[in-house]
Computed example of a mutant assay.
Amino acid sequence: MKQDEMIKLGISIGDLNGIGSEIVLKTFDDSRMLDFCTPIIFANTKILNFLKKQYKLSLHFQGIDHPSNAIDGKVNVVNVWKENVNINFGEEDTKIGEYAFRSLEAATAALKKDEIDVLVTAPINKATIQSDKFKFPGHTDYLARELGGESLMFMITDNLKVGLLTDHVALKDIASVITPDLIEKKIRTIQETLKKDFRIRKPKIAVLGINPHSGDNGLIGKEDEEVLKPTIKKLRDKGDLVFGPYAADSFFGTKNYKNFDAVIASYHDQGLVPFKTLSFGRGVNFTAGLSKVRTSPDHGTAFEIAGKNEANLNSFKEAVFKGIEIYKAREEYKELTENPLKKQGKKI
């Protein structure tokens, strides 16, 4: 990427009956955001103009047929569909789910072709988006299939980063899913993303236990003793700064997380409950390990407040900024690894 080029930031619109469109439009109603990127929303100008009036906003849209036609300094909209859409805020609707998928599909295709640099996804309804083309528990699994790589749900703020060994897995299946191979893969993914996406040269990672009190030496389940501890020791013997397993119930309350660059939790709620408690409204969901950069806000569709002009845009705005920062860091890392003499300040 050339220094004078604006980052093309693609946005999938999410579920139109939720708050996604509100937080997207409110974010770019602030014209200062156009100094940081060129937004390209994959949706339809008619529906966005309707929603703009709904939220009493003043931004203007530049309708385009292809991301390559995007204009810097404008809020660009790729018209993914032409027909009218009936919105009923707060309602689950499979037809609206279809439009959410069409937006995501078009944005992902553009990302794969390098027509956009970063993808920020507005929240979907995981039930209504299901179809023959989308049979996934969420964005992460779909994007992993489309983009390749060892994907990992990575919840991030400036001061706290939490990854998951397992994400959308039923609690009863957690212990059987966590294997030494999975642990190593996820930790490697976190190490790589901390290095190339967050400029941390020697990452220090904490691993939370699977069972209460990390199993209490086998008294409360044997998975921590037989699976987690040997794998962590194996990695540390290789020189990796990986520590644990730590008892999850006290780890965050004692602020132990501040001693590490990242924390890896065994399952969804073990990691996301403390993360959202400490960071809700400021956190960002980053899909680490993919070949491209994708971020999203740390919340869902919030049907209960949809259409009421009450949604908080902070997490979505943070997702935009983090996406831009990660993209720049990744480009810098690529340049340094391809031209190692630059790291030493030598001319080449």
Rank of each mutant, 00 (worst) to 15 (best):
D4M: 10
K8W: 05
K8A: 14
D15W: 02
N17I: 05
S21N: 09
S21L: 00
E22L: 10
V24S: 03
L25T: 10
F28C: 08
D30W: 02
M33L: 13
T38Q: 14
T38M: 14
P39F: 06
I41H: 01
T45A: 10
T45N: 03
K46L: 12
I47T: 15
K53E: 15
K53R: 10
Q54A: 00
Y55V: 10
Y55P: 07
L59S: 05
Q62W: 00
G63V: 00
I64A: 09
I71V: 15
N76G: 09
W81H: 11
W81Q: 02
E83H: 13
N84T: 13
V85E: 10
N86D: 15
N88S: 14
E91G: 01
E91C: 03
K95D: 12
I96W: 09
I96G: 07
G97D: 08
A100G: 04
A100I: 05
R102L: 15
S103W: 02
A110N: 06
K112C: 06
E115W: 00
I116Q: 03
D117M: 12
V120Y: 00
V120K: 02
T121Y: 01
T121Q: 06
A122T: 04
I124W: 06
N125C: 06
N125V: 01
K126H: 06
A127Q: 13
D132Q: 13
K133L: 12
P137K: 09
P137Y: 06
H139R: 03
H139E: 04
Y142R: 02
L143C: 08
S151L: 00
S151H: 14
F154S: 07
M155D: 05
T157L: 11
T157G: 04
L164Y: 13
L164F: 14
D167L: 10
H168G: 08
I174C: 09
A175E: 14
S176N: 14
S176A: 14
I178A: 11
T179K: 07
P180M: 13
P180L: 14
D181K: 15
D181M: 12
L182H: 03
E184T: 13
K186L: 03
E192L: 13
K195L: 07
F198S: 08
R199Y: 04
R199Q: 13
I200V: 15
I205V: 14
N211M: 07
P212E: 12
D216V: 11
G218T: 03
G218E: 06
K222W: 03
K222H: 11
E226F: 06
T231Y: 04
I232V: 04
K234H: 12
D240A: 05
G244L: 10
A248G: 12
F252C: 11
K255P: 00
Y257A: 08
K258E: 15
N259L: 10
F260K: 01
F260R: 01
S266E: 00
D269G: 12
D269H: 09
G271D: 04
G271L: 05
P274A: 09
K276S: 12
T277A: 08
L278C: 07
G283L: 08
V284W: 07
L290S: 04
K292E: 08
K292H: 14
K292L: 01
K292R: 15
D298C: 04
H299S: 12
H299I: 02
G300N: 11
A302W: 03
F303R: 05
A311V: 03
L313A: 14
L313C: 11
A319G: 10
K322D: 01
G323S: 08
I324H: 09
E325C: 01
E325S: 14
Y327P: 01
E331T: 07
E332Q: 09
T337M: 11
I348H: 11
